[in-house]
Design a protein around this nucleic acid. Structure first.
Lengths: 335, 335
DNA sequence: CTGTTTTGTGCAAAGGTTTGCACAGTGCGA
DNA sequence: TCGCACTGTGCAAACCTTTGCACAAAACAG
């Protein structure tokens, strides 16, 4: 059963397709009699305008593209739900791409989204990315672009972030307040902006509490559990090991927890541990992890809202939204 | 900078658009000289055919739709990766929809996918769904359809599943072999096919080991942690409580673990616990959970392959693929 | 009754591709 | 020389919608 078209309605009613189209759009110049007839028949036949034809004609697809590092990270799964909910409300569909932390995949994703003429793009950068010309091309084509979480400082576009600096400072501050004096940092890739912000927050907390900064305690990981595990082992085997660890993500914190457990190091007795994200798993491991709670769903919603603002009014200013976070104290830091 | 079109190439070369189109498709009737010229210029200008126009003309979108209950379930996140990888290999894009376990959302998703003229659809049913006419419409339109994991027994379509019956029997068998005599079942919604298969496996294991079946030990949950928690509490407060629990999903098992922990019940000493899925979190909780390992990525790949088979040859038989699973024995069942 | 506005509708183009058919030119066998 | 096959290209339709413009009829003002 083929979907029915404007033309078929037009033929049945002995009018032109243009009349049908206008009647359905409530064009003022169409007589109310015709409108009624057309709308009734359209209803009866369950007419749905063919979006492929509309896309071509209108040069817009009512679709926005979303690129995230991985949908299996709970943070991004939630953020996508946030984006999706506002998109649906606006009558838009979303197409989700994973960069898998790979620069090449990210470029391929952008190419594919531009090719399929999405009306706007929401991005959280891949871990590998340190070159941004593919995004410049998006801007050159006049396609609205919004970053969230892992943003791009070099481009002047709208962004949604949390205050990574303050959140990290707070997390490390909590470690210090509960007695830690040497704090290891499981950092992300050194090119990732938000990881560096968290590093800065770490340093600020140290100076604030007049603790020395020891570069040996900084361990850069990629986003894999394996590297989190390895770097934790590295930290505890230092001649002068830390008495607390701040991991810039819960994935890394969980990997650290396993490494510590495997090496017979008790948490929080021998080593305190703080993560970042409030990944659901942090609540069920033992001990439950102290972590930074953010609201990824809200972040997604906000990003989408910024995008739709631009979509409605391309003259709108670029905007930077900073969302609130909260330190969630659990049992991985001793009281 | 607007993308360039066939027409512009044609004008520059003083040929018709049809010649350009044919040259790019290597049509035999085009002279090799023309072909070379066209292809060279196309390359130089970085010509990409406008997919919107192709979609309209060809009546196909090179896109397949995927509907899953939630992308935040690790199982589905992985399955999507599997689907995506074969789709990319075939030159297709995927658009991912979440039903959020809701029948209404599922219908809306189907409508939207059909409207946007995807070339095929891969589905895992929402928990609520018990009526399938929206899928019948997909079939009526001749759109290839494949189910995976949560399948629809009433429709004759290709499907990918695991042997839920045997896997559950094996899981429960393991509980029994390790000393459990009264086994509680945290089941899914009673209308969900795979949950019922697992229930049947549970029953078979009991009869196999000549244990009585006690309906009081069957606790139906929806897919939320809250209900898993509540039903676990219900089980342990039974006058004659179980000494082991089999949860039909790891989400429920984790909820059970928390409930047991909160009530001071030790695992596996007082209560053994087995889950299903090998969700990553089962490896990091303590004790690590015994669970059924399946391969969601492979399941996604297989489903996509079945779909592409149909896409290439619409006369192809419907097929039911059953994937292997494996019991992963960890410490939540005492040795 | 003429001239202008208003009202209702249709024609055709546009959006960018693909493709059946037609056509002109060339080559070749008879 | 004619007929035929083959080669290389272009025209125009088709996919389906939206929309500027034109046009006819009706309404209305003077």
């Amino acid at each position: 059963m083929k979907p029915i078209t404007l033309k078929e309605i037009a033929e049945r009613l002995n009018v032109s397709t243009s009349t049908v189209s206008r009647a359905l759009h409530n064009h003022p110049r169409i007589s109310s009699a015709t409108k009624r007839a057309v709308q009734a028949l359209a209803q009866e036949l369950n007419f749905q305008p063919n979006p492929l034809a509309m896309n071509l004609r209108m040069q817009r697809t009512k679709t926005i593209g979303v690129i995230v590092p991985k949908i299996s990270y709970p943070f991004y799964a939630s953020a996508i739900s946030g984006i999706e909910s506002v998109a649906i409300r606006e009558g838009y569909n979303i197409v989700i791409c994973q960069s898998n932390e790979s620069y090449e995949r990210e470029v391929a994703n952008i190419t594919s989204l531009l090719l399929s003429r999405v009306d706007g793009i929401v991005v959280s950068l891949a871990g590998e990315t340190e070159e941004y010309s593919h995004f410049q091309e998006v801007l050159d084509r006049g396609v609205p672009l919004v970053f969230f979480n892992r943003i791009c400082p070099e481009l002047s576009v709208s962004q949604v972030v949390i205050d990574n600096f303050s959140a990290a400072r707070q997390a490390v501050g909590s470690l210090i307040q509960h007695g830690c004096r040497r704090i290891g940092l499981l950092a992300g890739p050194s090119k990732v902006n938000i990881s560096n912000e968290r590093l800065r927050g770490y340093q600020r907390a140290l100076t604030q509490y007049k603790l020395p900064f020891d570069p040996d305690l900084i361990a850069h990981c990629d986003y894999s559990e394996a590297s989190g595990y390895a770097q934790t082992v590295h930290l505890i085997q230092l001649p002068n090991p830390p008495d607390g660890i701040f991991a810039v993500s819960d994935r890394l914190a969980i990997a650290a927890l396993q490494a510590l457990r495997d090496h017979g190091i008790r948490i929080p007795k021998d080593m305190a541990l703080v993560g970042f994200n409030n990944d659901p798993v942090t609540a069920v491991v033992s001990p439950p992890l102290t972590t930074i709670d953010q609201n990824p769903e809200q972040m997604g919603e906000t990003a989408a809202q910024l995008l739709f603002q631009q979509l409605r009014n391309s003259k709108t200013d670029i905007e930077q939204v900073v969302l609130k976070t909260q330190l969630l104290e659990r049992n991985s830091v001793k009281k």
